[in-house]
Simulated scan of single mutants.
Amino acid sequence: MTDRFSGMTKTPQMPAARMLADANARLSVKLEAPASAPLDVVLTELEEKGAVIDILRLLGVALPARERVWWSCLAARDYVGEAPDNNTPALAASEEWVFRPTPENRDKAGATIDLAEPDDETVNCAMGVLYSDGTLGSGDLANVPAPLGAAEVVAFAMNVVAMDKHEEDFDTYVQLLIDRGVDIARGGNGKLDRENASAEKEE
């Protein structure tokens, strides 16, 4: 087994199947690994099967809340552009919450969702902030559970949106998204050069 997915110390120490179940998420491929298999084993099998979408889905489930939102923000920045000139309200507020995860910043991010332009996909980042603790917000909304797995699925969705905007270098970019998630799971900042992304394995 390769060490591409080793050392992901910020992810929960539980079977990958349990993480998926807790987030109401499913993979599209049938795994040979047992239900007790840890995250790195399942990710390695998915890589061997070429199931890159499932790898992204599982990373979105495995990353903790702040790291998950940061992963989605980096994907958004890939096509929106650098701050501050290319900020969207949702993206800027989401990044602010990552650096200072206060209730006030969470509310600020949540407030950008309804005000966003219809074609602003960066609201996925803000939704990840809003649902970060499994509820619909702060105050009275703290007692209202968010849809199961909502925070995880919007982070995955943000990466898929960014992926769809990189048709010219699709394979390389997908590997960057994966390596970025792994780096964040290891405690890194995820700011990897595209040239350093793992090359897609040949058949």
Rank of each mutant, 00 (worst) to 15 (best):
S132V: 06
D171Y: 07
E95A: 10
T112P: 10
G110L: 01
L136Q: 10
D3S: 14
T2N: 05
C73N: 03
V182Q: 02
T112W: 03
A90R: 13
Y173I: 00
Q175D: 07
D119H: 14
T172D: 15
E168G: 08
W71F: 11
L91I: 13
A146T: 13
R57T: 01
K49T: 00
G190F: 05
A199I: 13
M19T: 00
D107I: 09
P34D: 11
E168D: 08
D120K: 09
P101Q: 02
D78W: 00
D179T: 02
L31P: 15
H166I: 00
M1Q: 08
D54L: 10
P145S: 15
G128S: 14
K30G: 09
L27Y: 07
G137L: 06
A111Y: 11
D140F: 06
V123I: 12
R18Y: 12
A25R: 05
F156S: 11
T88C: 09
E195R: 02
M19L: 08
E96W: 10
W70I: 11
P15M: 08
K108Y: 13
S94L: 06
N86I: 03
A25M: 07
V42L: 15
I55F: 00
M127T: 06
P103L: 06
C125M: 03
A62I: 02
A197I: 14
E202F: 06
R68N: 06
K10T: 06
A16Q: 01
A35Y: 05
V61R: 07
L31S: 03
A185K: 10
W70K: 09
A93C: 08
D164P: 01
R18N: 04
V61H: 11
S6F: 05
M19H: 00
F99T: 15
S28N: 15
L115Y: 06
D22C: 05
A51N: 01
E152F: 03
M127L: 01
L91M: 07
K201E: 15
V61G: 04
M127P: 12
N105G: 13
V129S: 05
A90S: 14
W70V: 07
N24M: 11
V29D: 13
E82C: 09
D85M: 13
G50F: 12
K201Y: 10
A35C: 03
Q175R: 10
T102H: 11
I184W: 04
V161I: 10
T9L: 12
E203Y: 15
P145H: 14
L91A: 01
Y79K: 04
W71D: 13
A83I: 04
A16S: 04
E47M: 09
D85R: 12
F99H: 13
A116W: 05
C73Q: 08
N143C: 12
A92I: 10
V182P: 05
C73I: 05
G128K: 03
S198I: 00
R68H: 09
T135F: 02
K108A: 15
M163L: 09
R57Y: 09
V41C: 07
D54N: 02
G7E: 02
S132F: 08
V42W: 14
I53C: 01
K49W: 05
D169I: 10
